[in-house]
Simulated scan of single mutants.
Amino acid sequence: MIPRIFRPLALGLLALAFAVPAAHAHPHVYVTMKSEIVYDAEGRMTGIRHHWTFDDMFSSYATQGLESKEKGKFTREELQPLAEVNVTSLKEYDFFTQGKMNGQKAEFEQPVDYFLEQKDDLLTLHFTLPLKKPAATKDVDIEIYDPLFFVAFEFSDKEPITLKGAPGSCKLTTVKLGDQTQSKSLSESIFARPDPNNPFGAQFANKIGVKC
């Protein structure tokens, strides 16, 4: 099933996508991501703030038919209905965010503070995923990926992941796809040898680890 947000774009590519075996599947939407892992004044993790910038093709396609005061330029208010569609549609895919805290599955609330903005003709979706309950964490392991691999995520080149308000003892590690040298330093609970039962897209996940 293609996420609703991507279905209009997918229609023109559907025949090709299903004609290619899963082993040779490839994404049709590309996202450059930055994220903040947020902590409260007591040093407890409270959630994740995502900033996802879509590629130029999808950014252009997504805004077709939208009304704006200035042709081709959209304000945050004009893009808000599209932002609503984004976050609503991604619910069934857990917002492409999987994680464990102290070895237990991380449970998130519905997104808050979400909006789209346009810059240099590219759309960026901003949203926060609050934890259901703030938690003191020794180990946090997070993967961000589309299980269908229709969407490919890539870390931003500059400060892709930051810790906001974290205790000074917390150390951040990121592992990009294909980077095997850093992966050994992350918690093995989620980054161990790939499970063949995992969704296809999981093997393309970039990974985030925090140890406190």
Rank of each mutant, 00 (worst) to 15 (best):
I2S: 13
I2P: 15
R4S: 08
I5S: 04
R7V: 07
R7Q: 12
L13W: 06
L14W: 08
L14C: 10
A15E: 08
A15W: 08
A15C: 05
A17S: 12
A19P: 04
A19H: 01
A19Q: 09
A22H: 02
H24R: 13
H28W: 06
H28D: 00
V29Q: 10
Y30W: 11
V31L: 02
V31R: 05
M33E: 11
M33Q: 14
K34Y: 00
K34I: 05
K34C: 07
I37D: 01
D40F: 01
D40E: 05
G43M: 03
M45K: 02
T46E: 08
H50Q: 15
D56G: 00
F58T: 07
S59W: 04
Y61E: 08
Y61G: 03
E70I: 13
G72P: 12
K73F: 15
K73E: 12
F74T: 00
F74G: 00
R76T: 10
R76M: 13
E78L: 14
E78W: 11
L79W: 06
L79S: 05
Q80G: 08
P81A: 11
P81T: 09
E84V: 14
V85K: 15
V87C: 13
V87N: 12
T88I: 10
Y93I: 08
Y93E: 15
D94M: 09
D94H: 13
T97H: 02
Q98G: 05
G99H: 07
K100P: 01
N102L: 11
G103K: 03
Q104D: 14
K105T: 12
K105R: 14
Q110W: 14
Q110M: 10
Q110T: 12
D113K: 15
D113I: 00
Y114S: 13
F115N: 10
K119M: 05
L123P: 01
L125V: 05
T128Y: 04
K133Y: 01
A135K: 11
T137C: 14
K138D: 13
K138P: 07
D139P: 00
D139M: 05
V140L: 15
I142C: 01
E143K: 06
I144H: 06
Y145R: 08
P147Y: 10
F150Q: 03
V151I: 15
F153W: 08
F155W: 10
S156L: 09
E159W: 03
P160Y: 04
P160T: 04
P160D: 02
I161H: 02
I161R: 03
T162A: 13
T162H: 00
K164A: 11
G168Q: 13
G168H: 07
C170D: 03
L172M: 10
L172P: 02
T173N: 11
T173Y: 12
T173S: 08
T173G: 09
T174E: 09
T174Q: 02
V175K: 09
K176H: 04
L177Y: 09
L177V: 15
L177A: 11
D179H: 13
Q180N: 13
Q180D: 15
Q180M: 09
T181M: 07
S185E: 06
S187P: 00
S187F: 00
P194Y: 09
P196N: 14
A202K: 13
A205E: 02
V210K: 02
